[in-house]
Design a protein around this nucleic acid. Structure first.
Lengths: 212, 212
DNA sequence: ATATAAATTGACCACCCTGGTCGACTGGGT
DNA sequence: ACCCAGTCGACCAGGGTGGTCAATTTATAT
């Protein structure tokens, strides 16, 4: 692995992108090292020179993706915002940015989370659980509960709001399928998103407790 | 194909289940006819005796799944219910029932809808589009718009409510992963689901326009 | 009972792809 | 001149592919 880290950034990135993508699309077993090296533009031997085996490569990618997610996503959210919906608006923005900058990491990680075909070492498993815990804190910690209507269960309102936002993001992602994310003008979609957020506030917050 | 339809129901079902499952899990290209026949408990030759080729089998399954969905799902929903959330409650119940009775069809169809690796004949494509149109009508046709609050856009409220329900269903499905659906006691989950629906009514409907 | 037809099997085919290895080659440092 | 880390891709044995077909069992008709 030290071999790999000695490479110049650009080459590293090409190899990471190629292998993250391959694993994300095909899962562990059916991912092909041949396709990876072709996509990355390196000789077959090099992949096994940098990483010793397919399995080692996979574990390296898991750790890389976890670190990436914590640093470029979780650590960017300002947890001093106590308005739940505002907090989620912010996470949506940060997430979109991180996702646009490196889609492969997100795709890889989400297939990794669902898949059960391979078990990683305990150290990585721990890291993964720690990351989930961190993600929860990023969303729920320090939220001002008094903004919510008194006649609805706050826990359930949390979930409904999160599901709504995930639903919007999924639909948007699906409708933008195939387009190069880097060159899509997101402005109108943010407008639309904010409109949805306003509705959620009207619906789930107390009357008159809303800003402006 | 007539050969296949002449079989007794039980054998047909075994073959359908095995191949729907295989295609759903691996996609068209990587699905293995060998695994299908092993799972179905028939000789290799028979699959190509009933259906002429892998492709023909796939198209048969698409049509079968579309017909199944329309008959056992769409046609069971009572569209005389004009309360949007009540209508969706009902579709959720019908869907859960149909899904429990034949999970493979739903899994196959949802991967088919996302996948782009194979294009089916125009006739099937038309049938698919007709089914989507039918699904929309099942959900939106004849809905009483006056129940909704005046200060929110109804179209957007529709979507928020649907996303919420889909979110709940996904989370439930995920938490029940691996268990045999046929022998899960759904009663407490329906309780929980109804609680969520009540919150949605409180949030998105006019004050005092709610039943009881 | 016999002849004919239909259903069913699985060994077999030629081909493709797999993760991983290894001898050959490169270019820069000494 | 020698060394050596870096790089390549032909090559390996093994396994899986969709599809075929001669052989056998089972059902049907006479």
């Amino acid at each position: 692995m030290e071999k790999f880290k000695g490479l110049d950034e650009e080459k590293q990135q090409k190899i990471l992108d190629a292998s993250l993508k391959e694993f994300a699309e095909h899962g562990y077993e059916k991912a092909s090292t041949n396709r990876m090296v072709k996509e990355a533009g390196i000789g077959k031997g090099m992949l096994f020179y940098y990483f010793n085996s397919k399995k080692d490569l996979y574990e390296y990618l898991v750790e890389y993706s976890l670190d990436f997610t914590v640093e470029k996503y979780f650590n960017q959210v300002d947890t001093s915002e106590t308005d739940f919906i505002e907090r989620l608006k912010q996470t949506a923005q940060v997430k979109t940015k991180a996702q646009t900058e490196n889609r492969n990491v997100f795709n890889f990680l989400s297939t990794y989370m669902l898949s059960t075909e391979i078990k990683v070492p305990a150290r990585l498993q721990k890291k993964y659980e720690y990351m989930q815990e961190m993600g929860n804190r990023m969303i729920y910690e320090g939220i001002d509960l008094t903004l919510f209507r008194d006649d609805v269960n706050v826990e359930k309102a949390f979930k409904l709001i999160r599901w709504s936002i995930e639903g919007y993001q999924n639909e948007l992602l699906h409708s933008l399928q195939g387009q190069n994310m880097a060159q899509v003008d997101f402005a109108p979609y943010w407008e639309e998103f904010y409109a949805y957020m306003e509705i959620l506030k009207k619906s789930f917050y107390k009357e008159g407790e809303r800003e402006q």
